[in-house]
Amino acid sequence: MSHTAHIPSHRKPRLSTAKNVLRAGVAGGVLSTIAVAGAAGSANAAEPVTETTIQMPTLSAAQVAEATEQAATDLQQQAQQDTAAQDAAKAAKKAKTDAVHKAEAKKKAEAKAKAEAEAKKKAEAAALQRASRSSARTTLNAVPASSVSNIGGSSSSSSSQATGSAASIVSFVKSHIGDAYVMGGTGSSSWDCSGLVQAAYKNIGVDLPRVSQGQSTAGTQVSLSNLQPGDILYWGSAGSAYHVAIYVGGGQFVGAQNPSSGVVERPLSYDQPTGAVRVL
């Protein structure tokens, strides 16, 4: 054998550089995949993932009918509830209106009761005045007739003794005896008490206040024992008289008395006046 004969080497042949790089890359990728898989496995072991599958139920015809009927029932109940709510609202509104009406009725009733009480009070006051007048008439009737005939200083025919303006006043009021009494009346055929007196004086060119209160202070106050035809008689107090008339002589007066009597001539004893004023 030659000394130069080929002796096989016990070392493995070298891989090329490209193959080494390729192997290293594949090994690295495998190791990375294993690492990721291991981490994912640990995470999955800590928090298990539950997957839910939603499956839509299949309804039968009976179930559909039942659902429809239930929906209709619900709608009907809702409608009934709405109707009940509306009825309750109407009832509440009506109750409120009724309460207002009752309050108004109560207020009117109280006002009516108050008015009736005032009317009763006035009626009682008028009754007292009438009683006072009646007492005065009784006292006057107790006086001898001769004394009565001398009131005003004249006889029963003293109206014929009135002269001048006084005679005109007496003639005017006597010409309207029988005319109607009308509250606020100023002629020519209907009068109230002060309207007739004012017209009688206006007939001679004398202007008097329109109402009895003013007429009772329009002249000089005179005593009832010293009356003259044409004097203004008043009932009540001077400045607040509630009735007036004209003294015509002979113990008589003419005045618009009331709606039932109208304009009349009466003796002083019929309704004794409180006082008198003389304008002329």
Rank of each mutant, 00 (worst) to 15 (best):
K120S: 14
A65R: 09
Y247G: 00
T17E: 01
S154Y: 00
A18F: 12
G251C: 07
F172W: 11
E66P: 02
V279K: 03
S158N: 02
E47A: 13
V222G: 03
L15Q: 05
P8K: 05
S168I: 04
C193M: 04
A5K: 00
G25T: 14
G164F: 03
W235I: 07
S237W: 02
S32G: 11
L280I: 14
A37F: 06
P209K: 05
L268G: 04
Q198P: 01
Q215R: 00
S147V: 10
S146V: 10
V30R: 11
S189D: 12
I169Q: 07
T33S: 08
S149T: 13
V277D: 10
I151H: 00
V49S: 13
K174I: 10
T73L: 07
N150M: 08
V248L: 01
G236L: 09
S2K: 01
T33P: 01
V143A: 00
T217L: 01
L15C: 03
A113W: 02
E47C: 09
A200Y: 04
A119K: 14
E104K: 15
G275Q: 07
A123K: 15
Y270E: 08
V26R: 14
G214Y: 07
A115Q: 12
K90L: 14
E66Y: 02
V211T: 09
Q213M: 10
V206A: 02
T274C: 09
S149G: 14
K112W: 13
D87M: 13
L224G: 09
A127H: 08
G236H: 08
P48K: 15
A115S: 13
V244F: 02
P259T: 13
L59A: 10
M183R: 01
P267V: 01
S240G: 09
S42Y: 15
V254F: 04
G249E: 00
C193V: 07
S269Y: 09
S165F: 04
S156W: 07
T274R: 10
A43R: 13
S135D: 14
S60C: 08
R137Q: 13
Q221R: 15
G255S: 13
A276R: 01
Y247M: 03
S269I: 10
L140R: 03
G28A: 15
K106D: 15
V26P: 06
A95M: 10
V206C: 03
T68Y: 01
M56G: 12
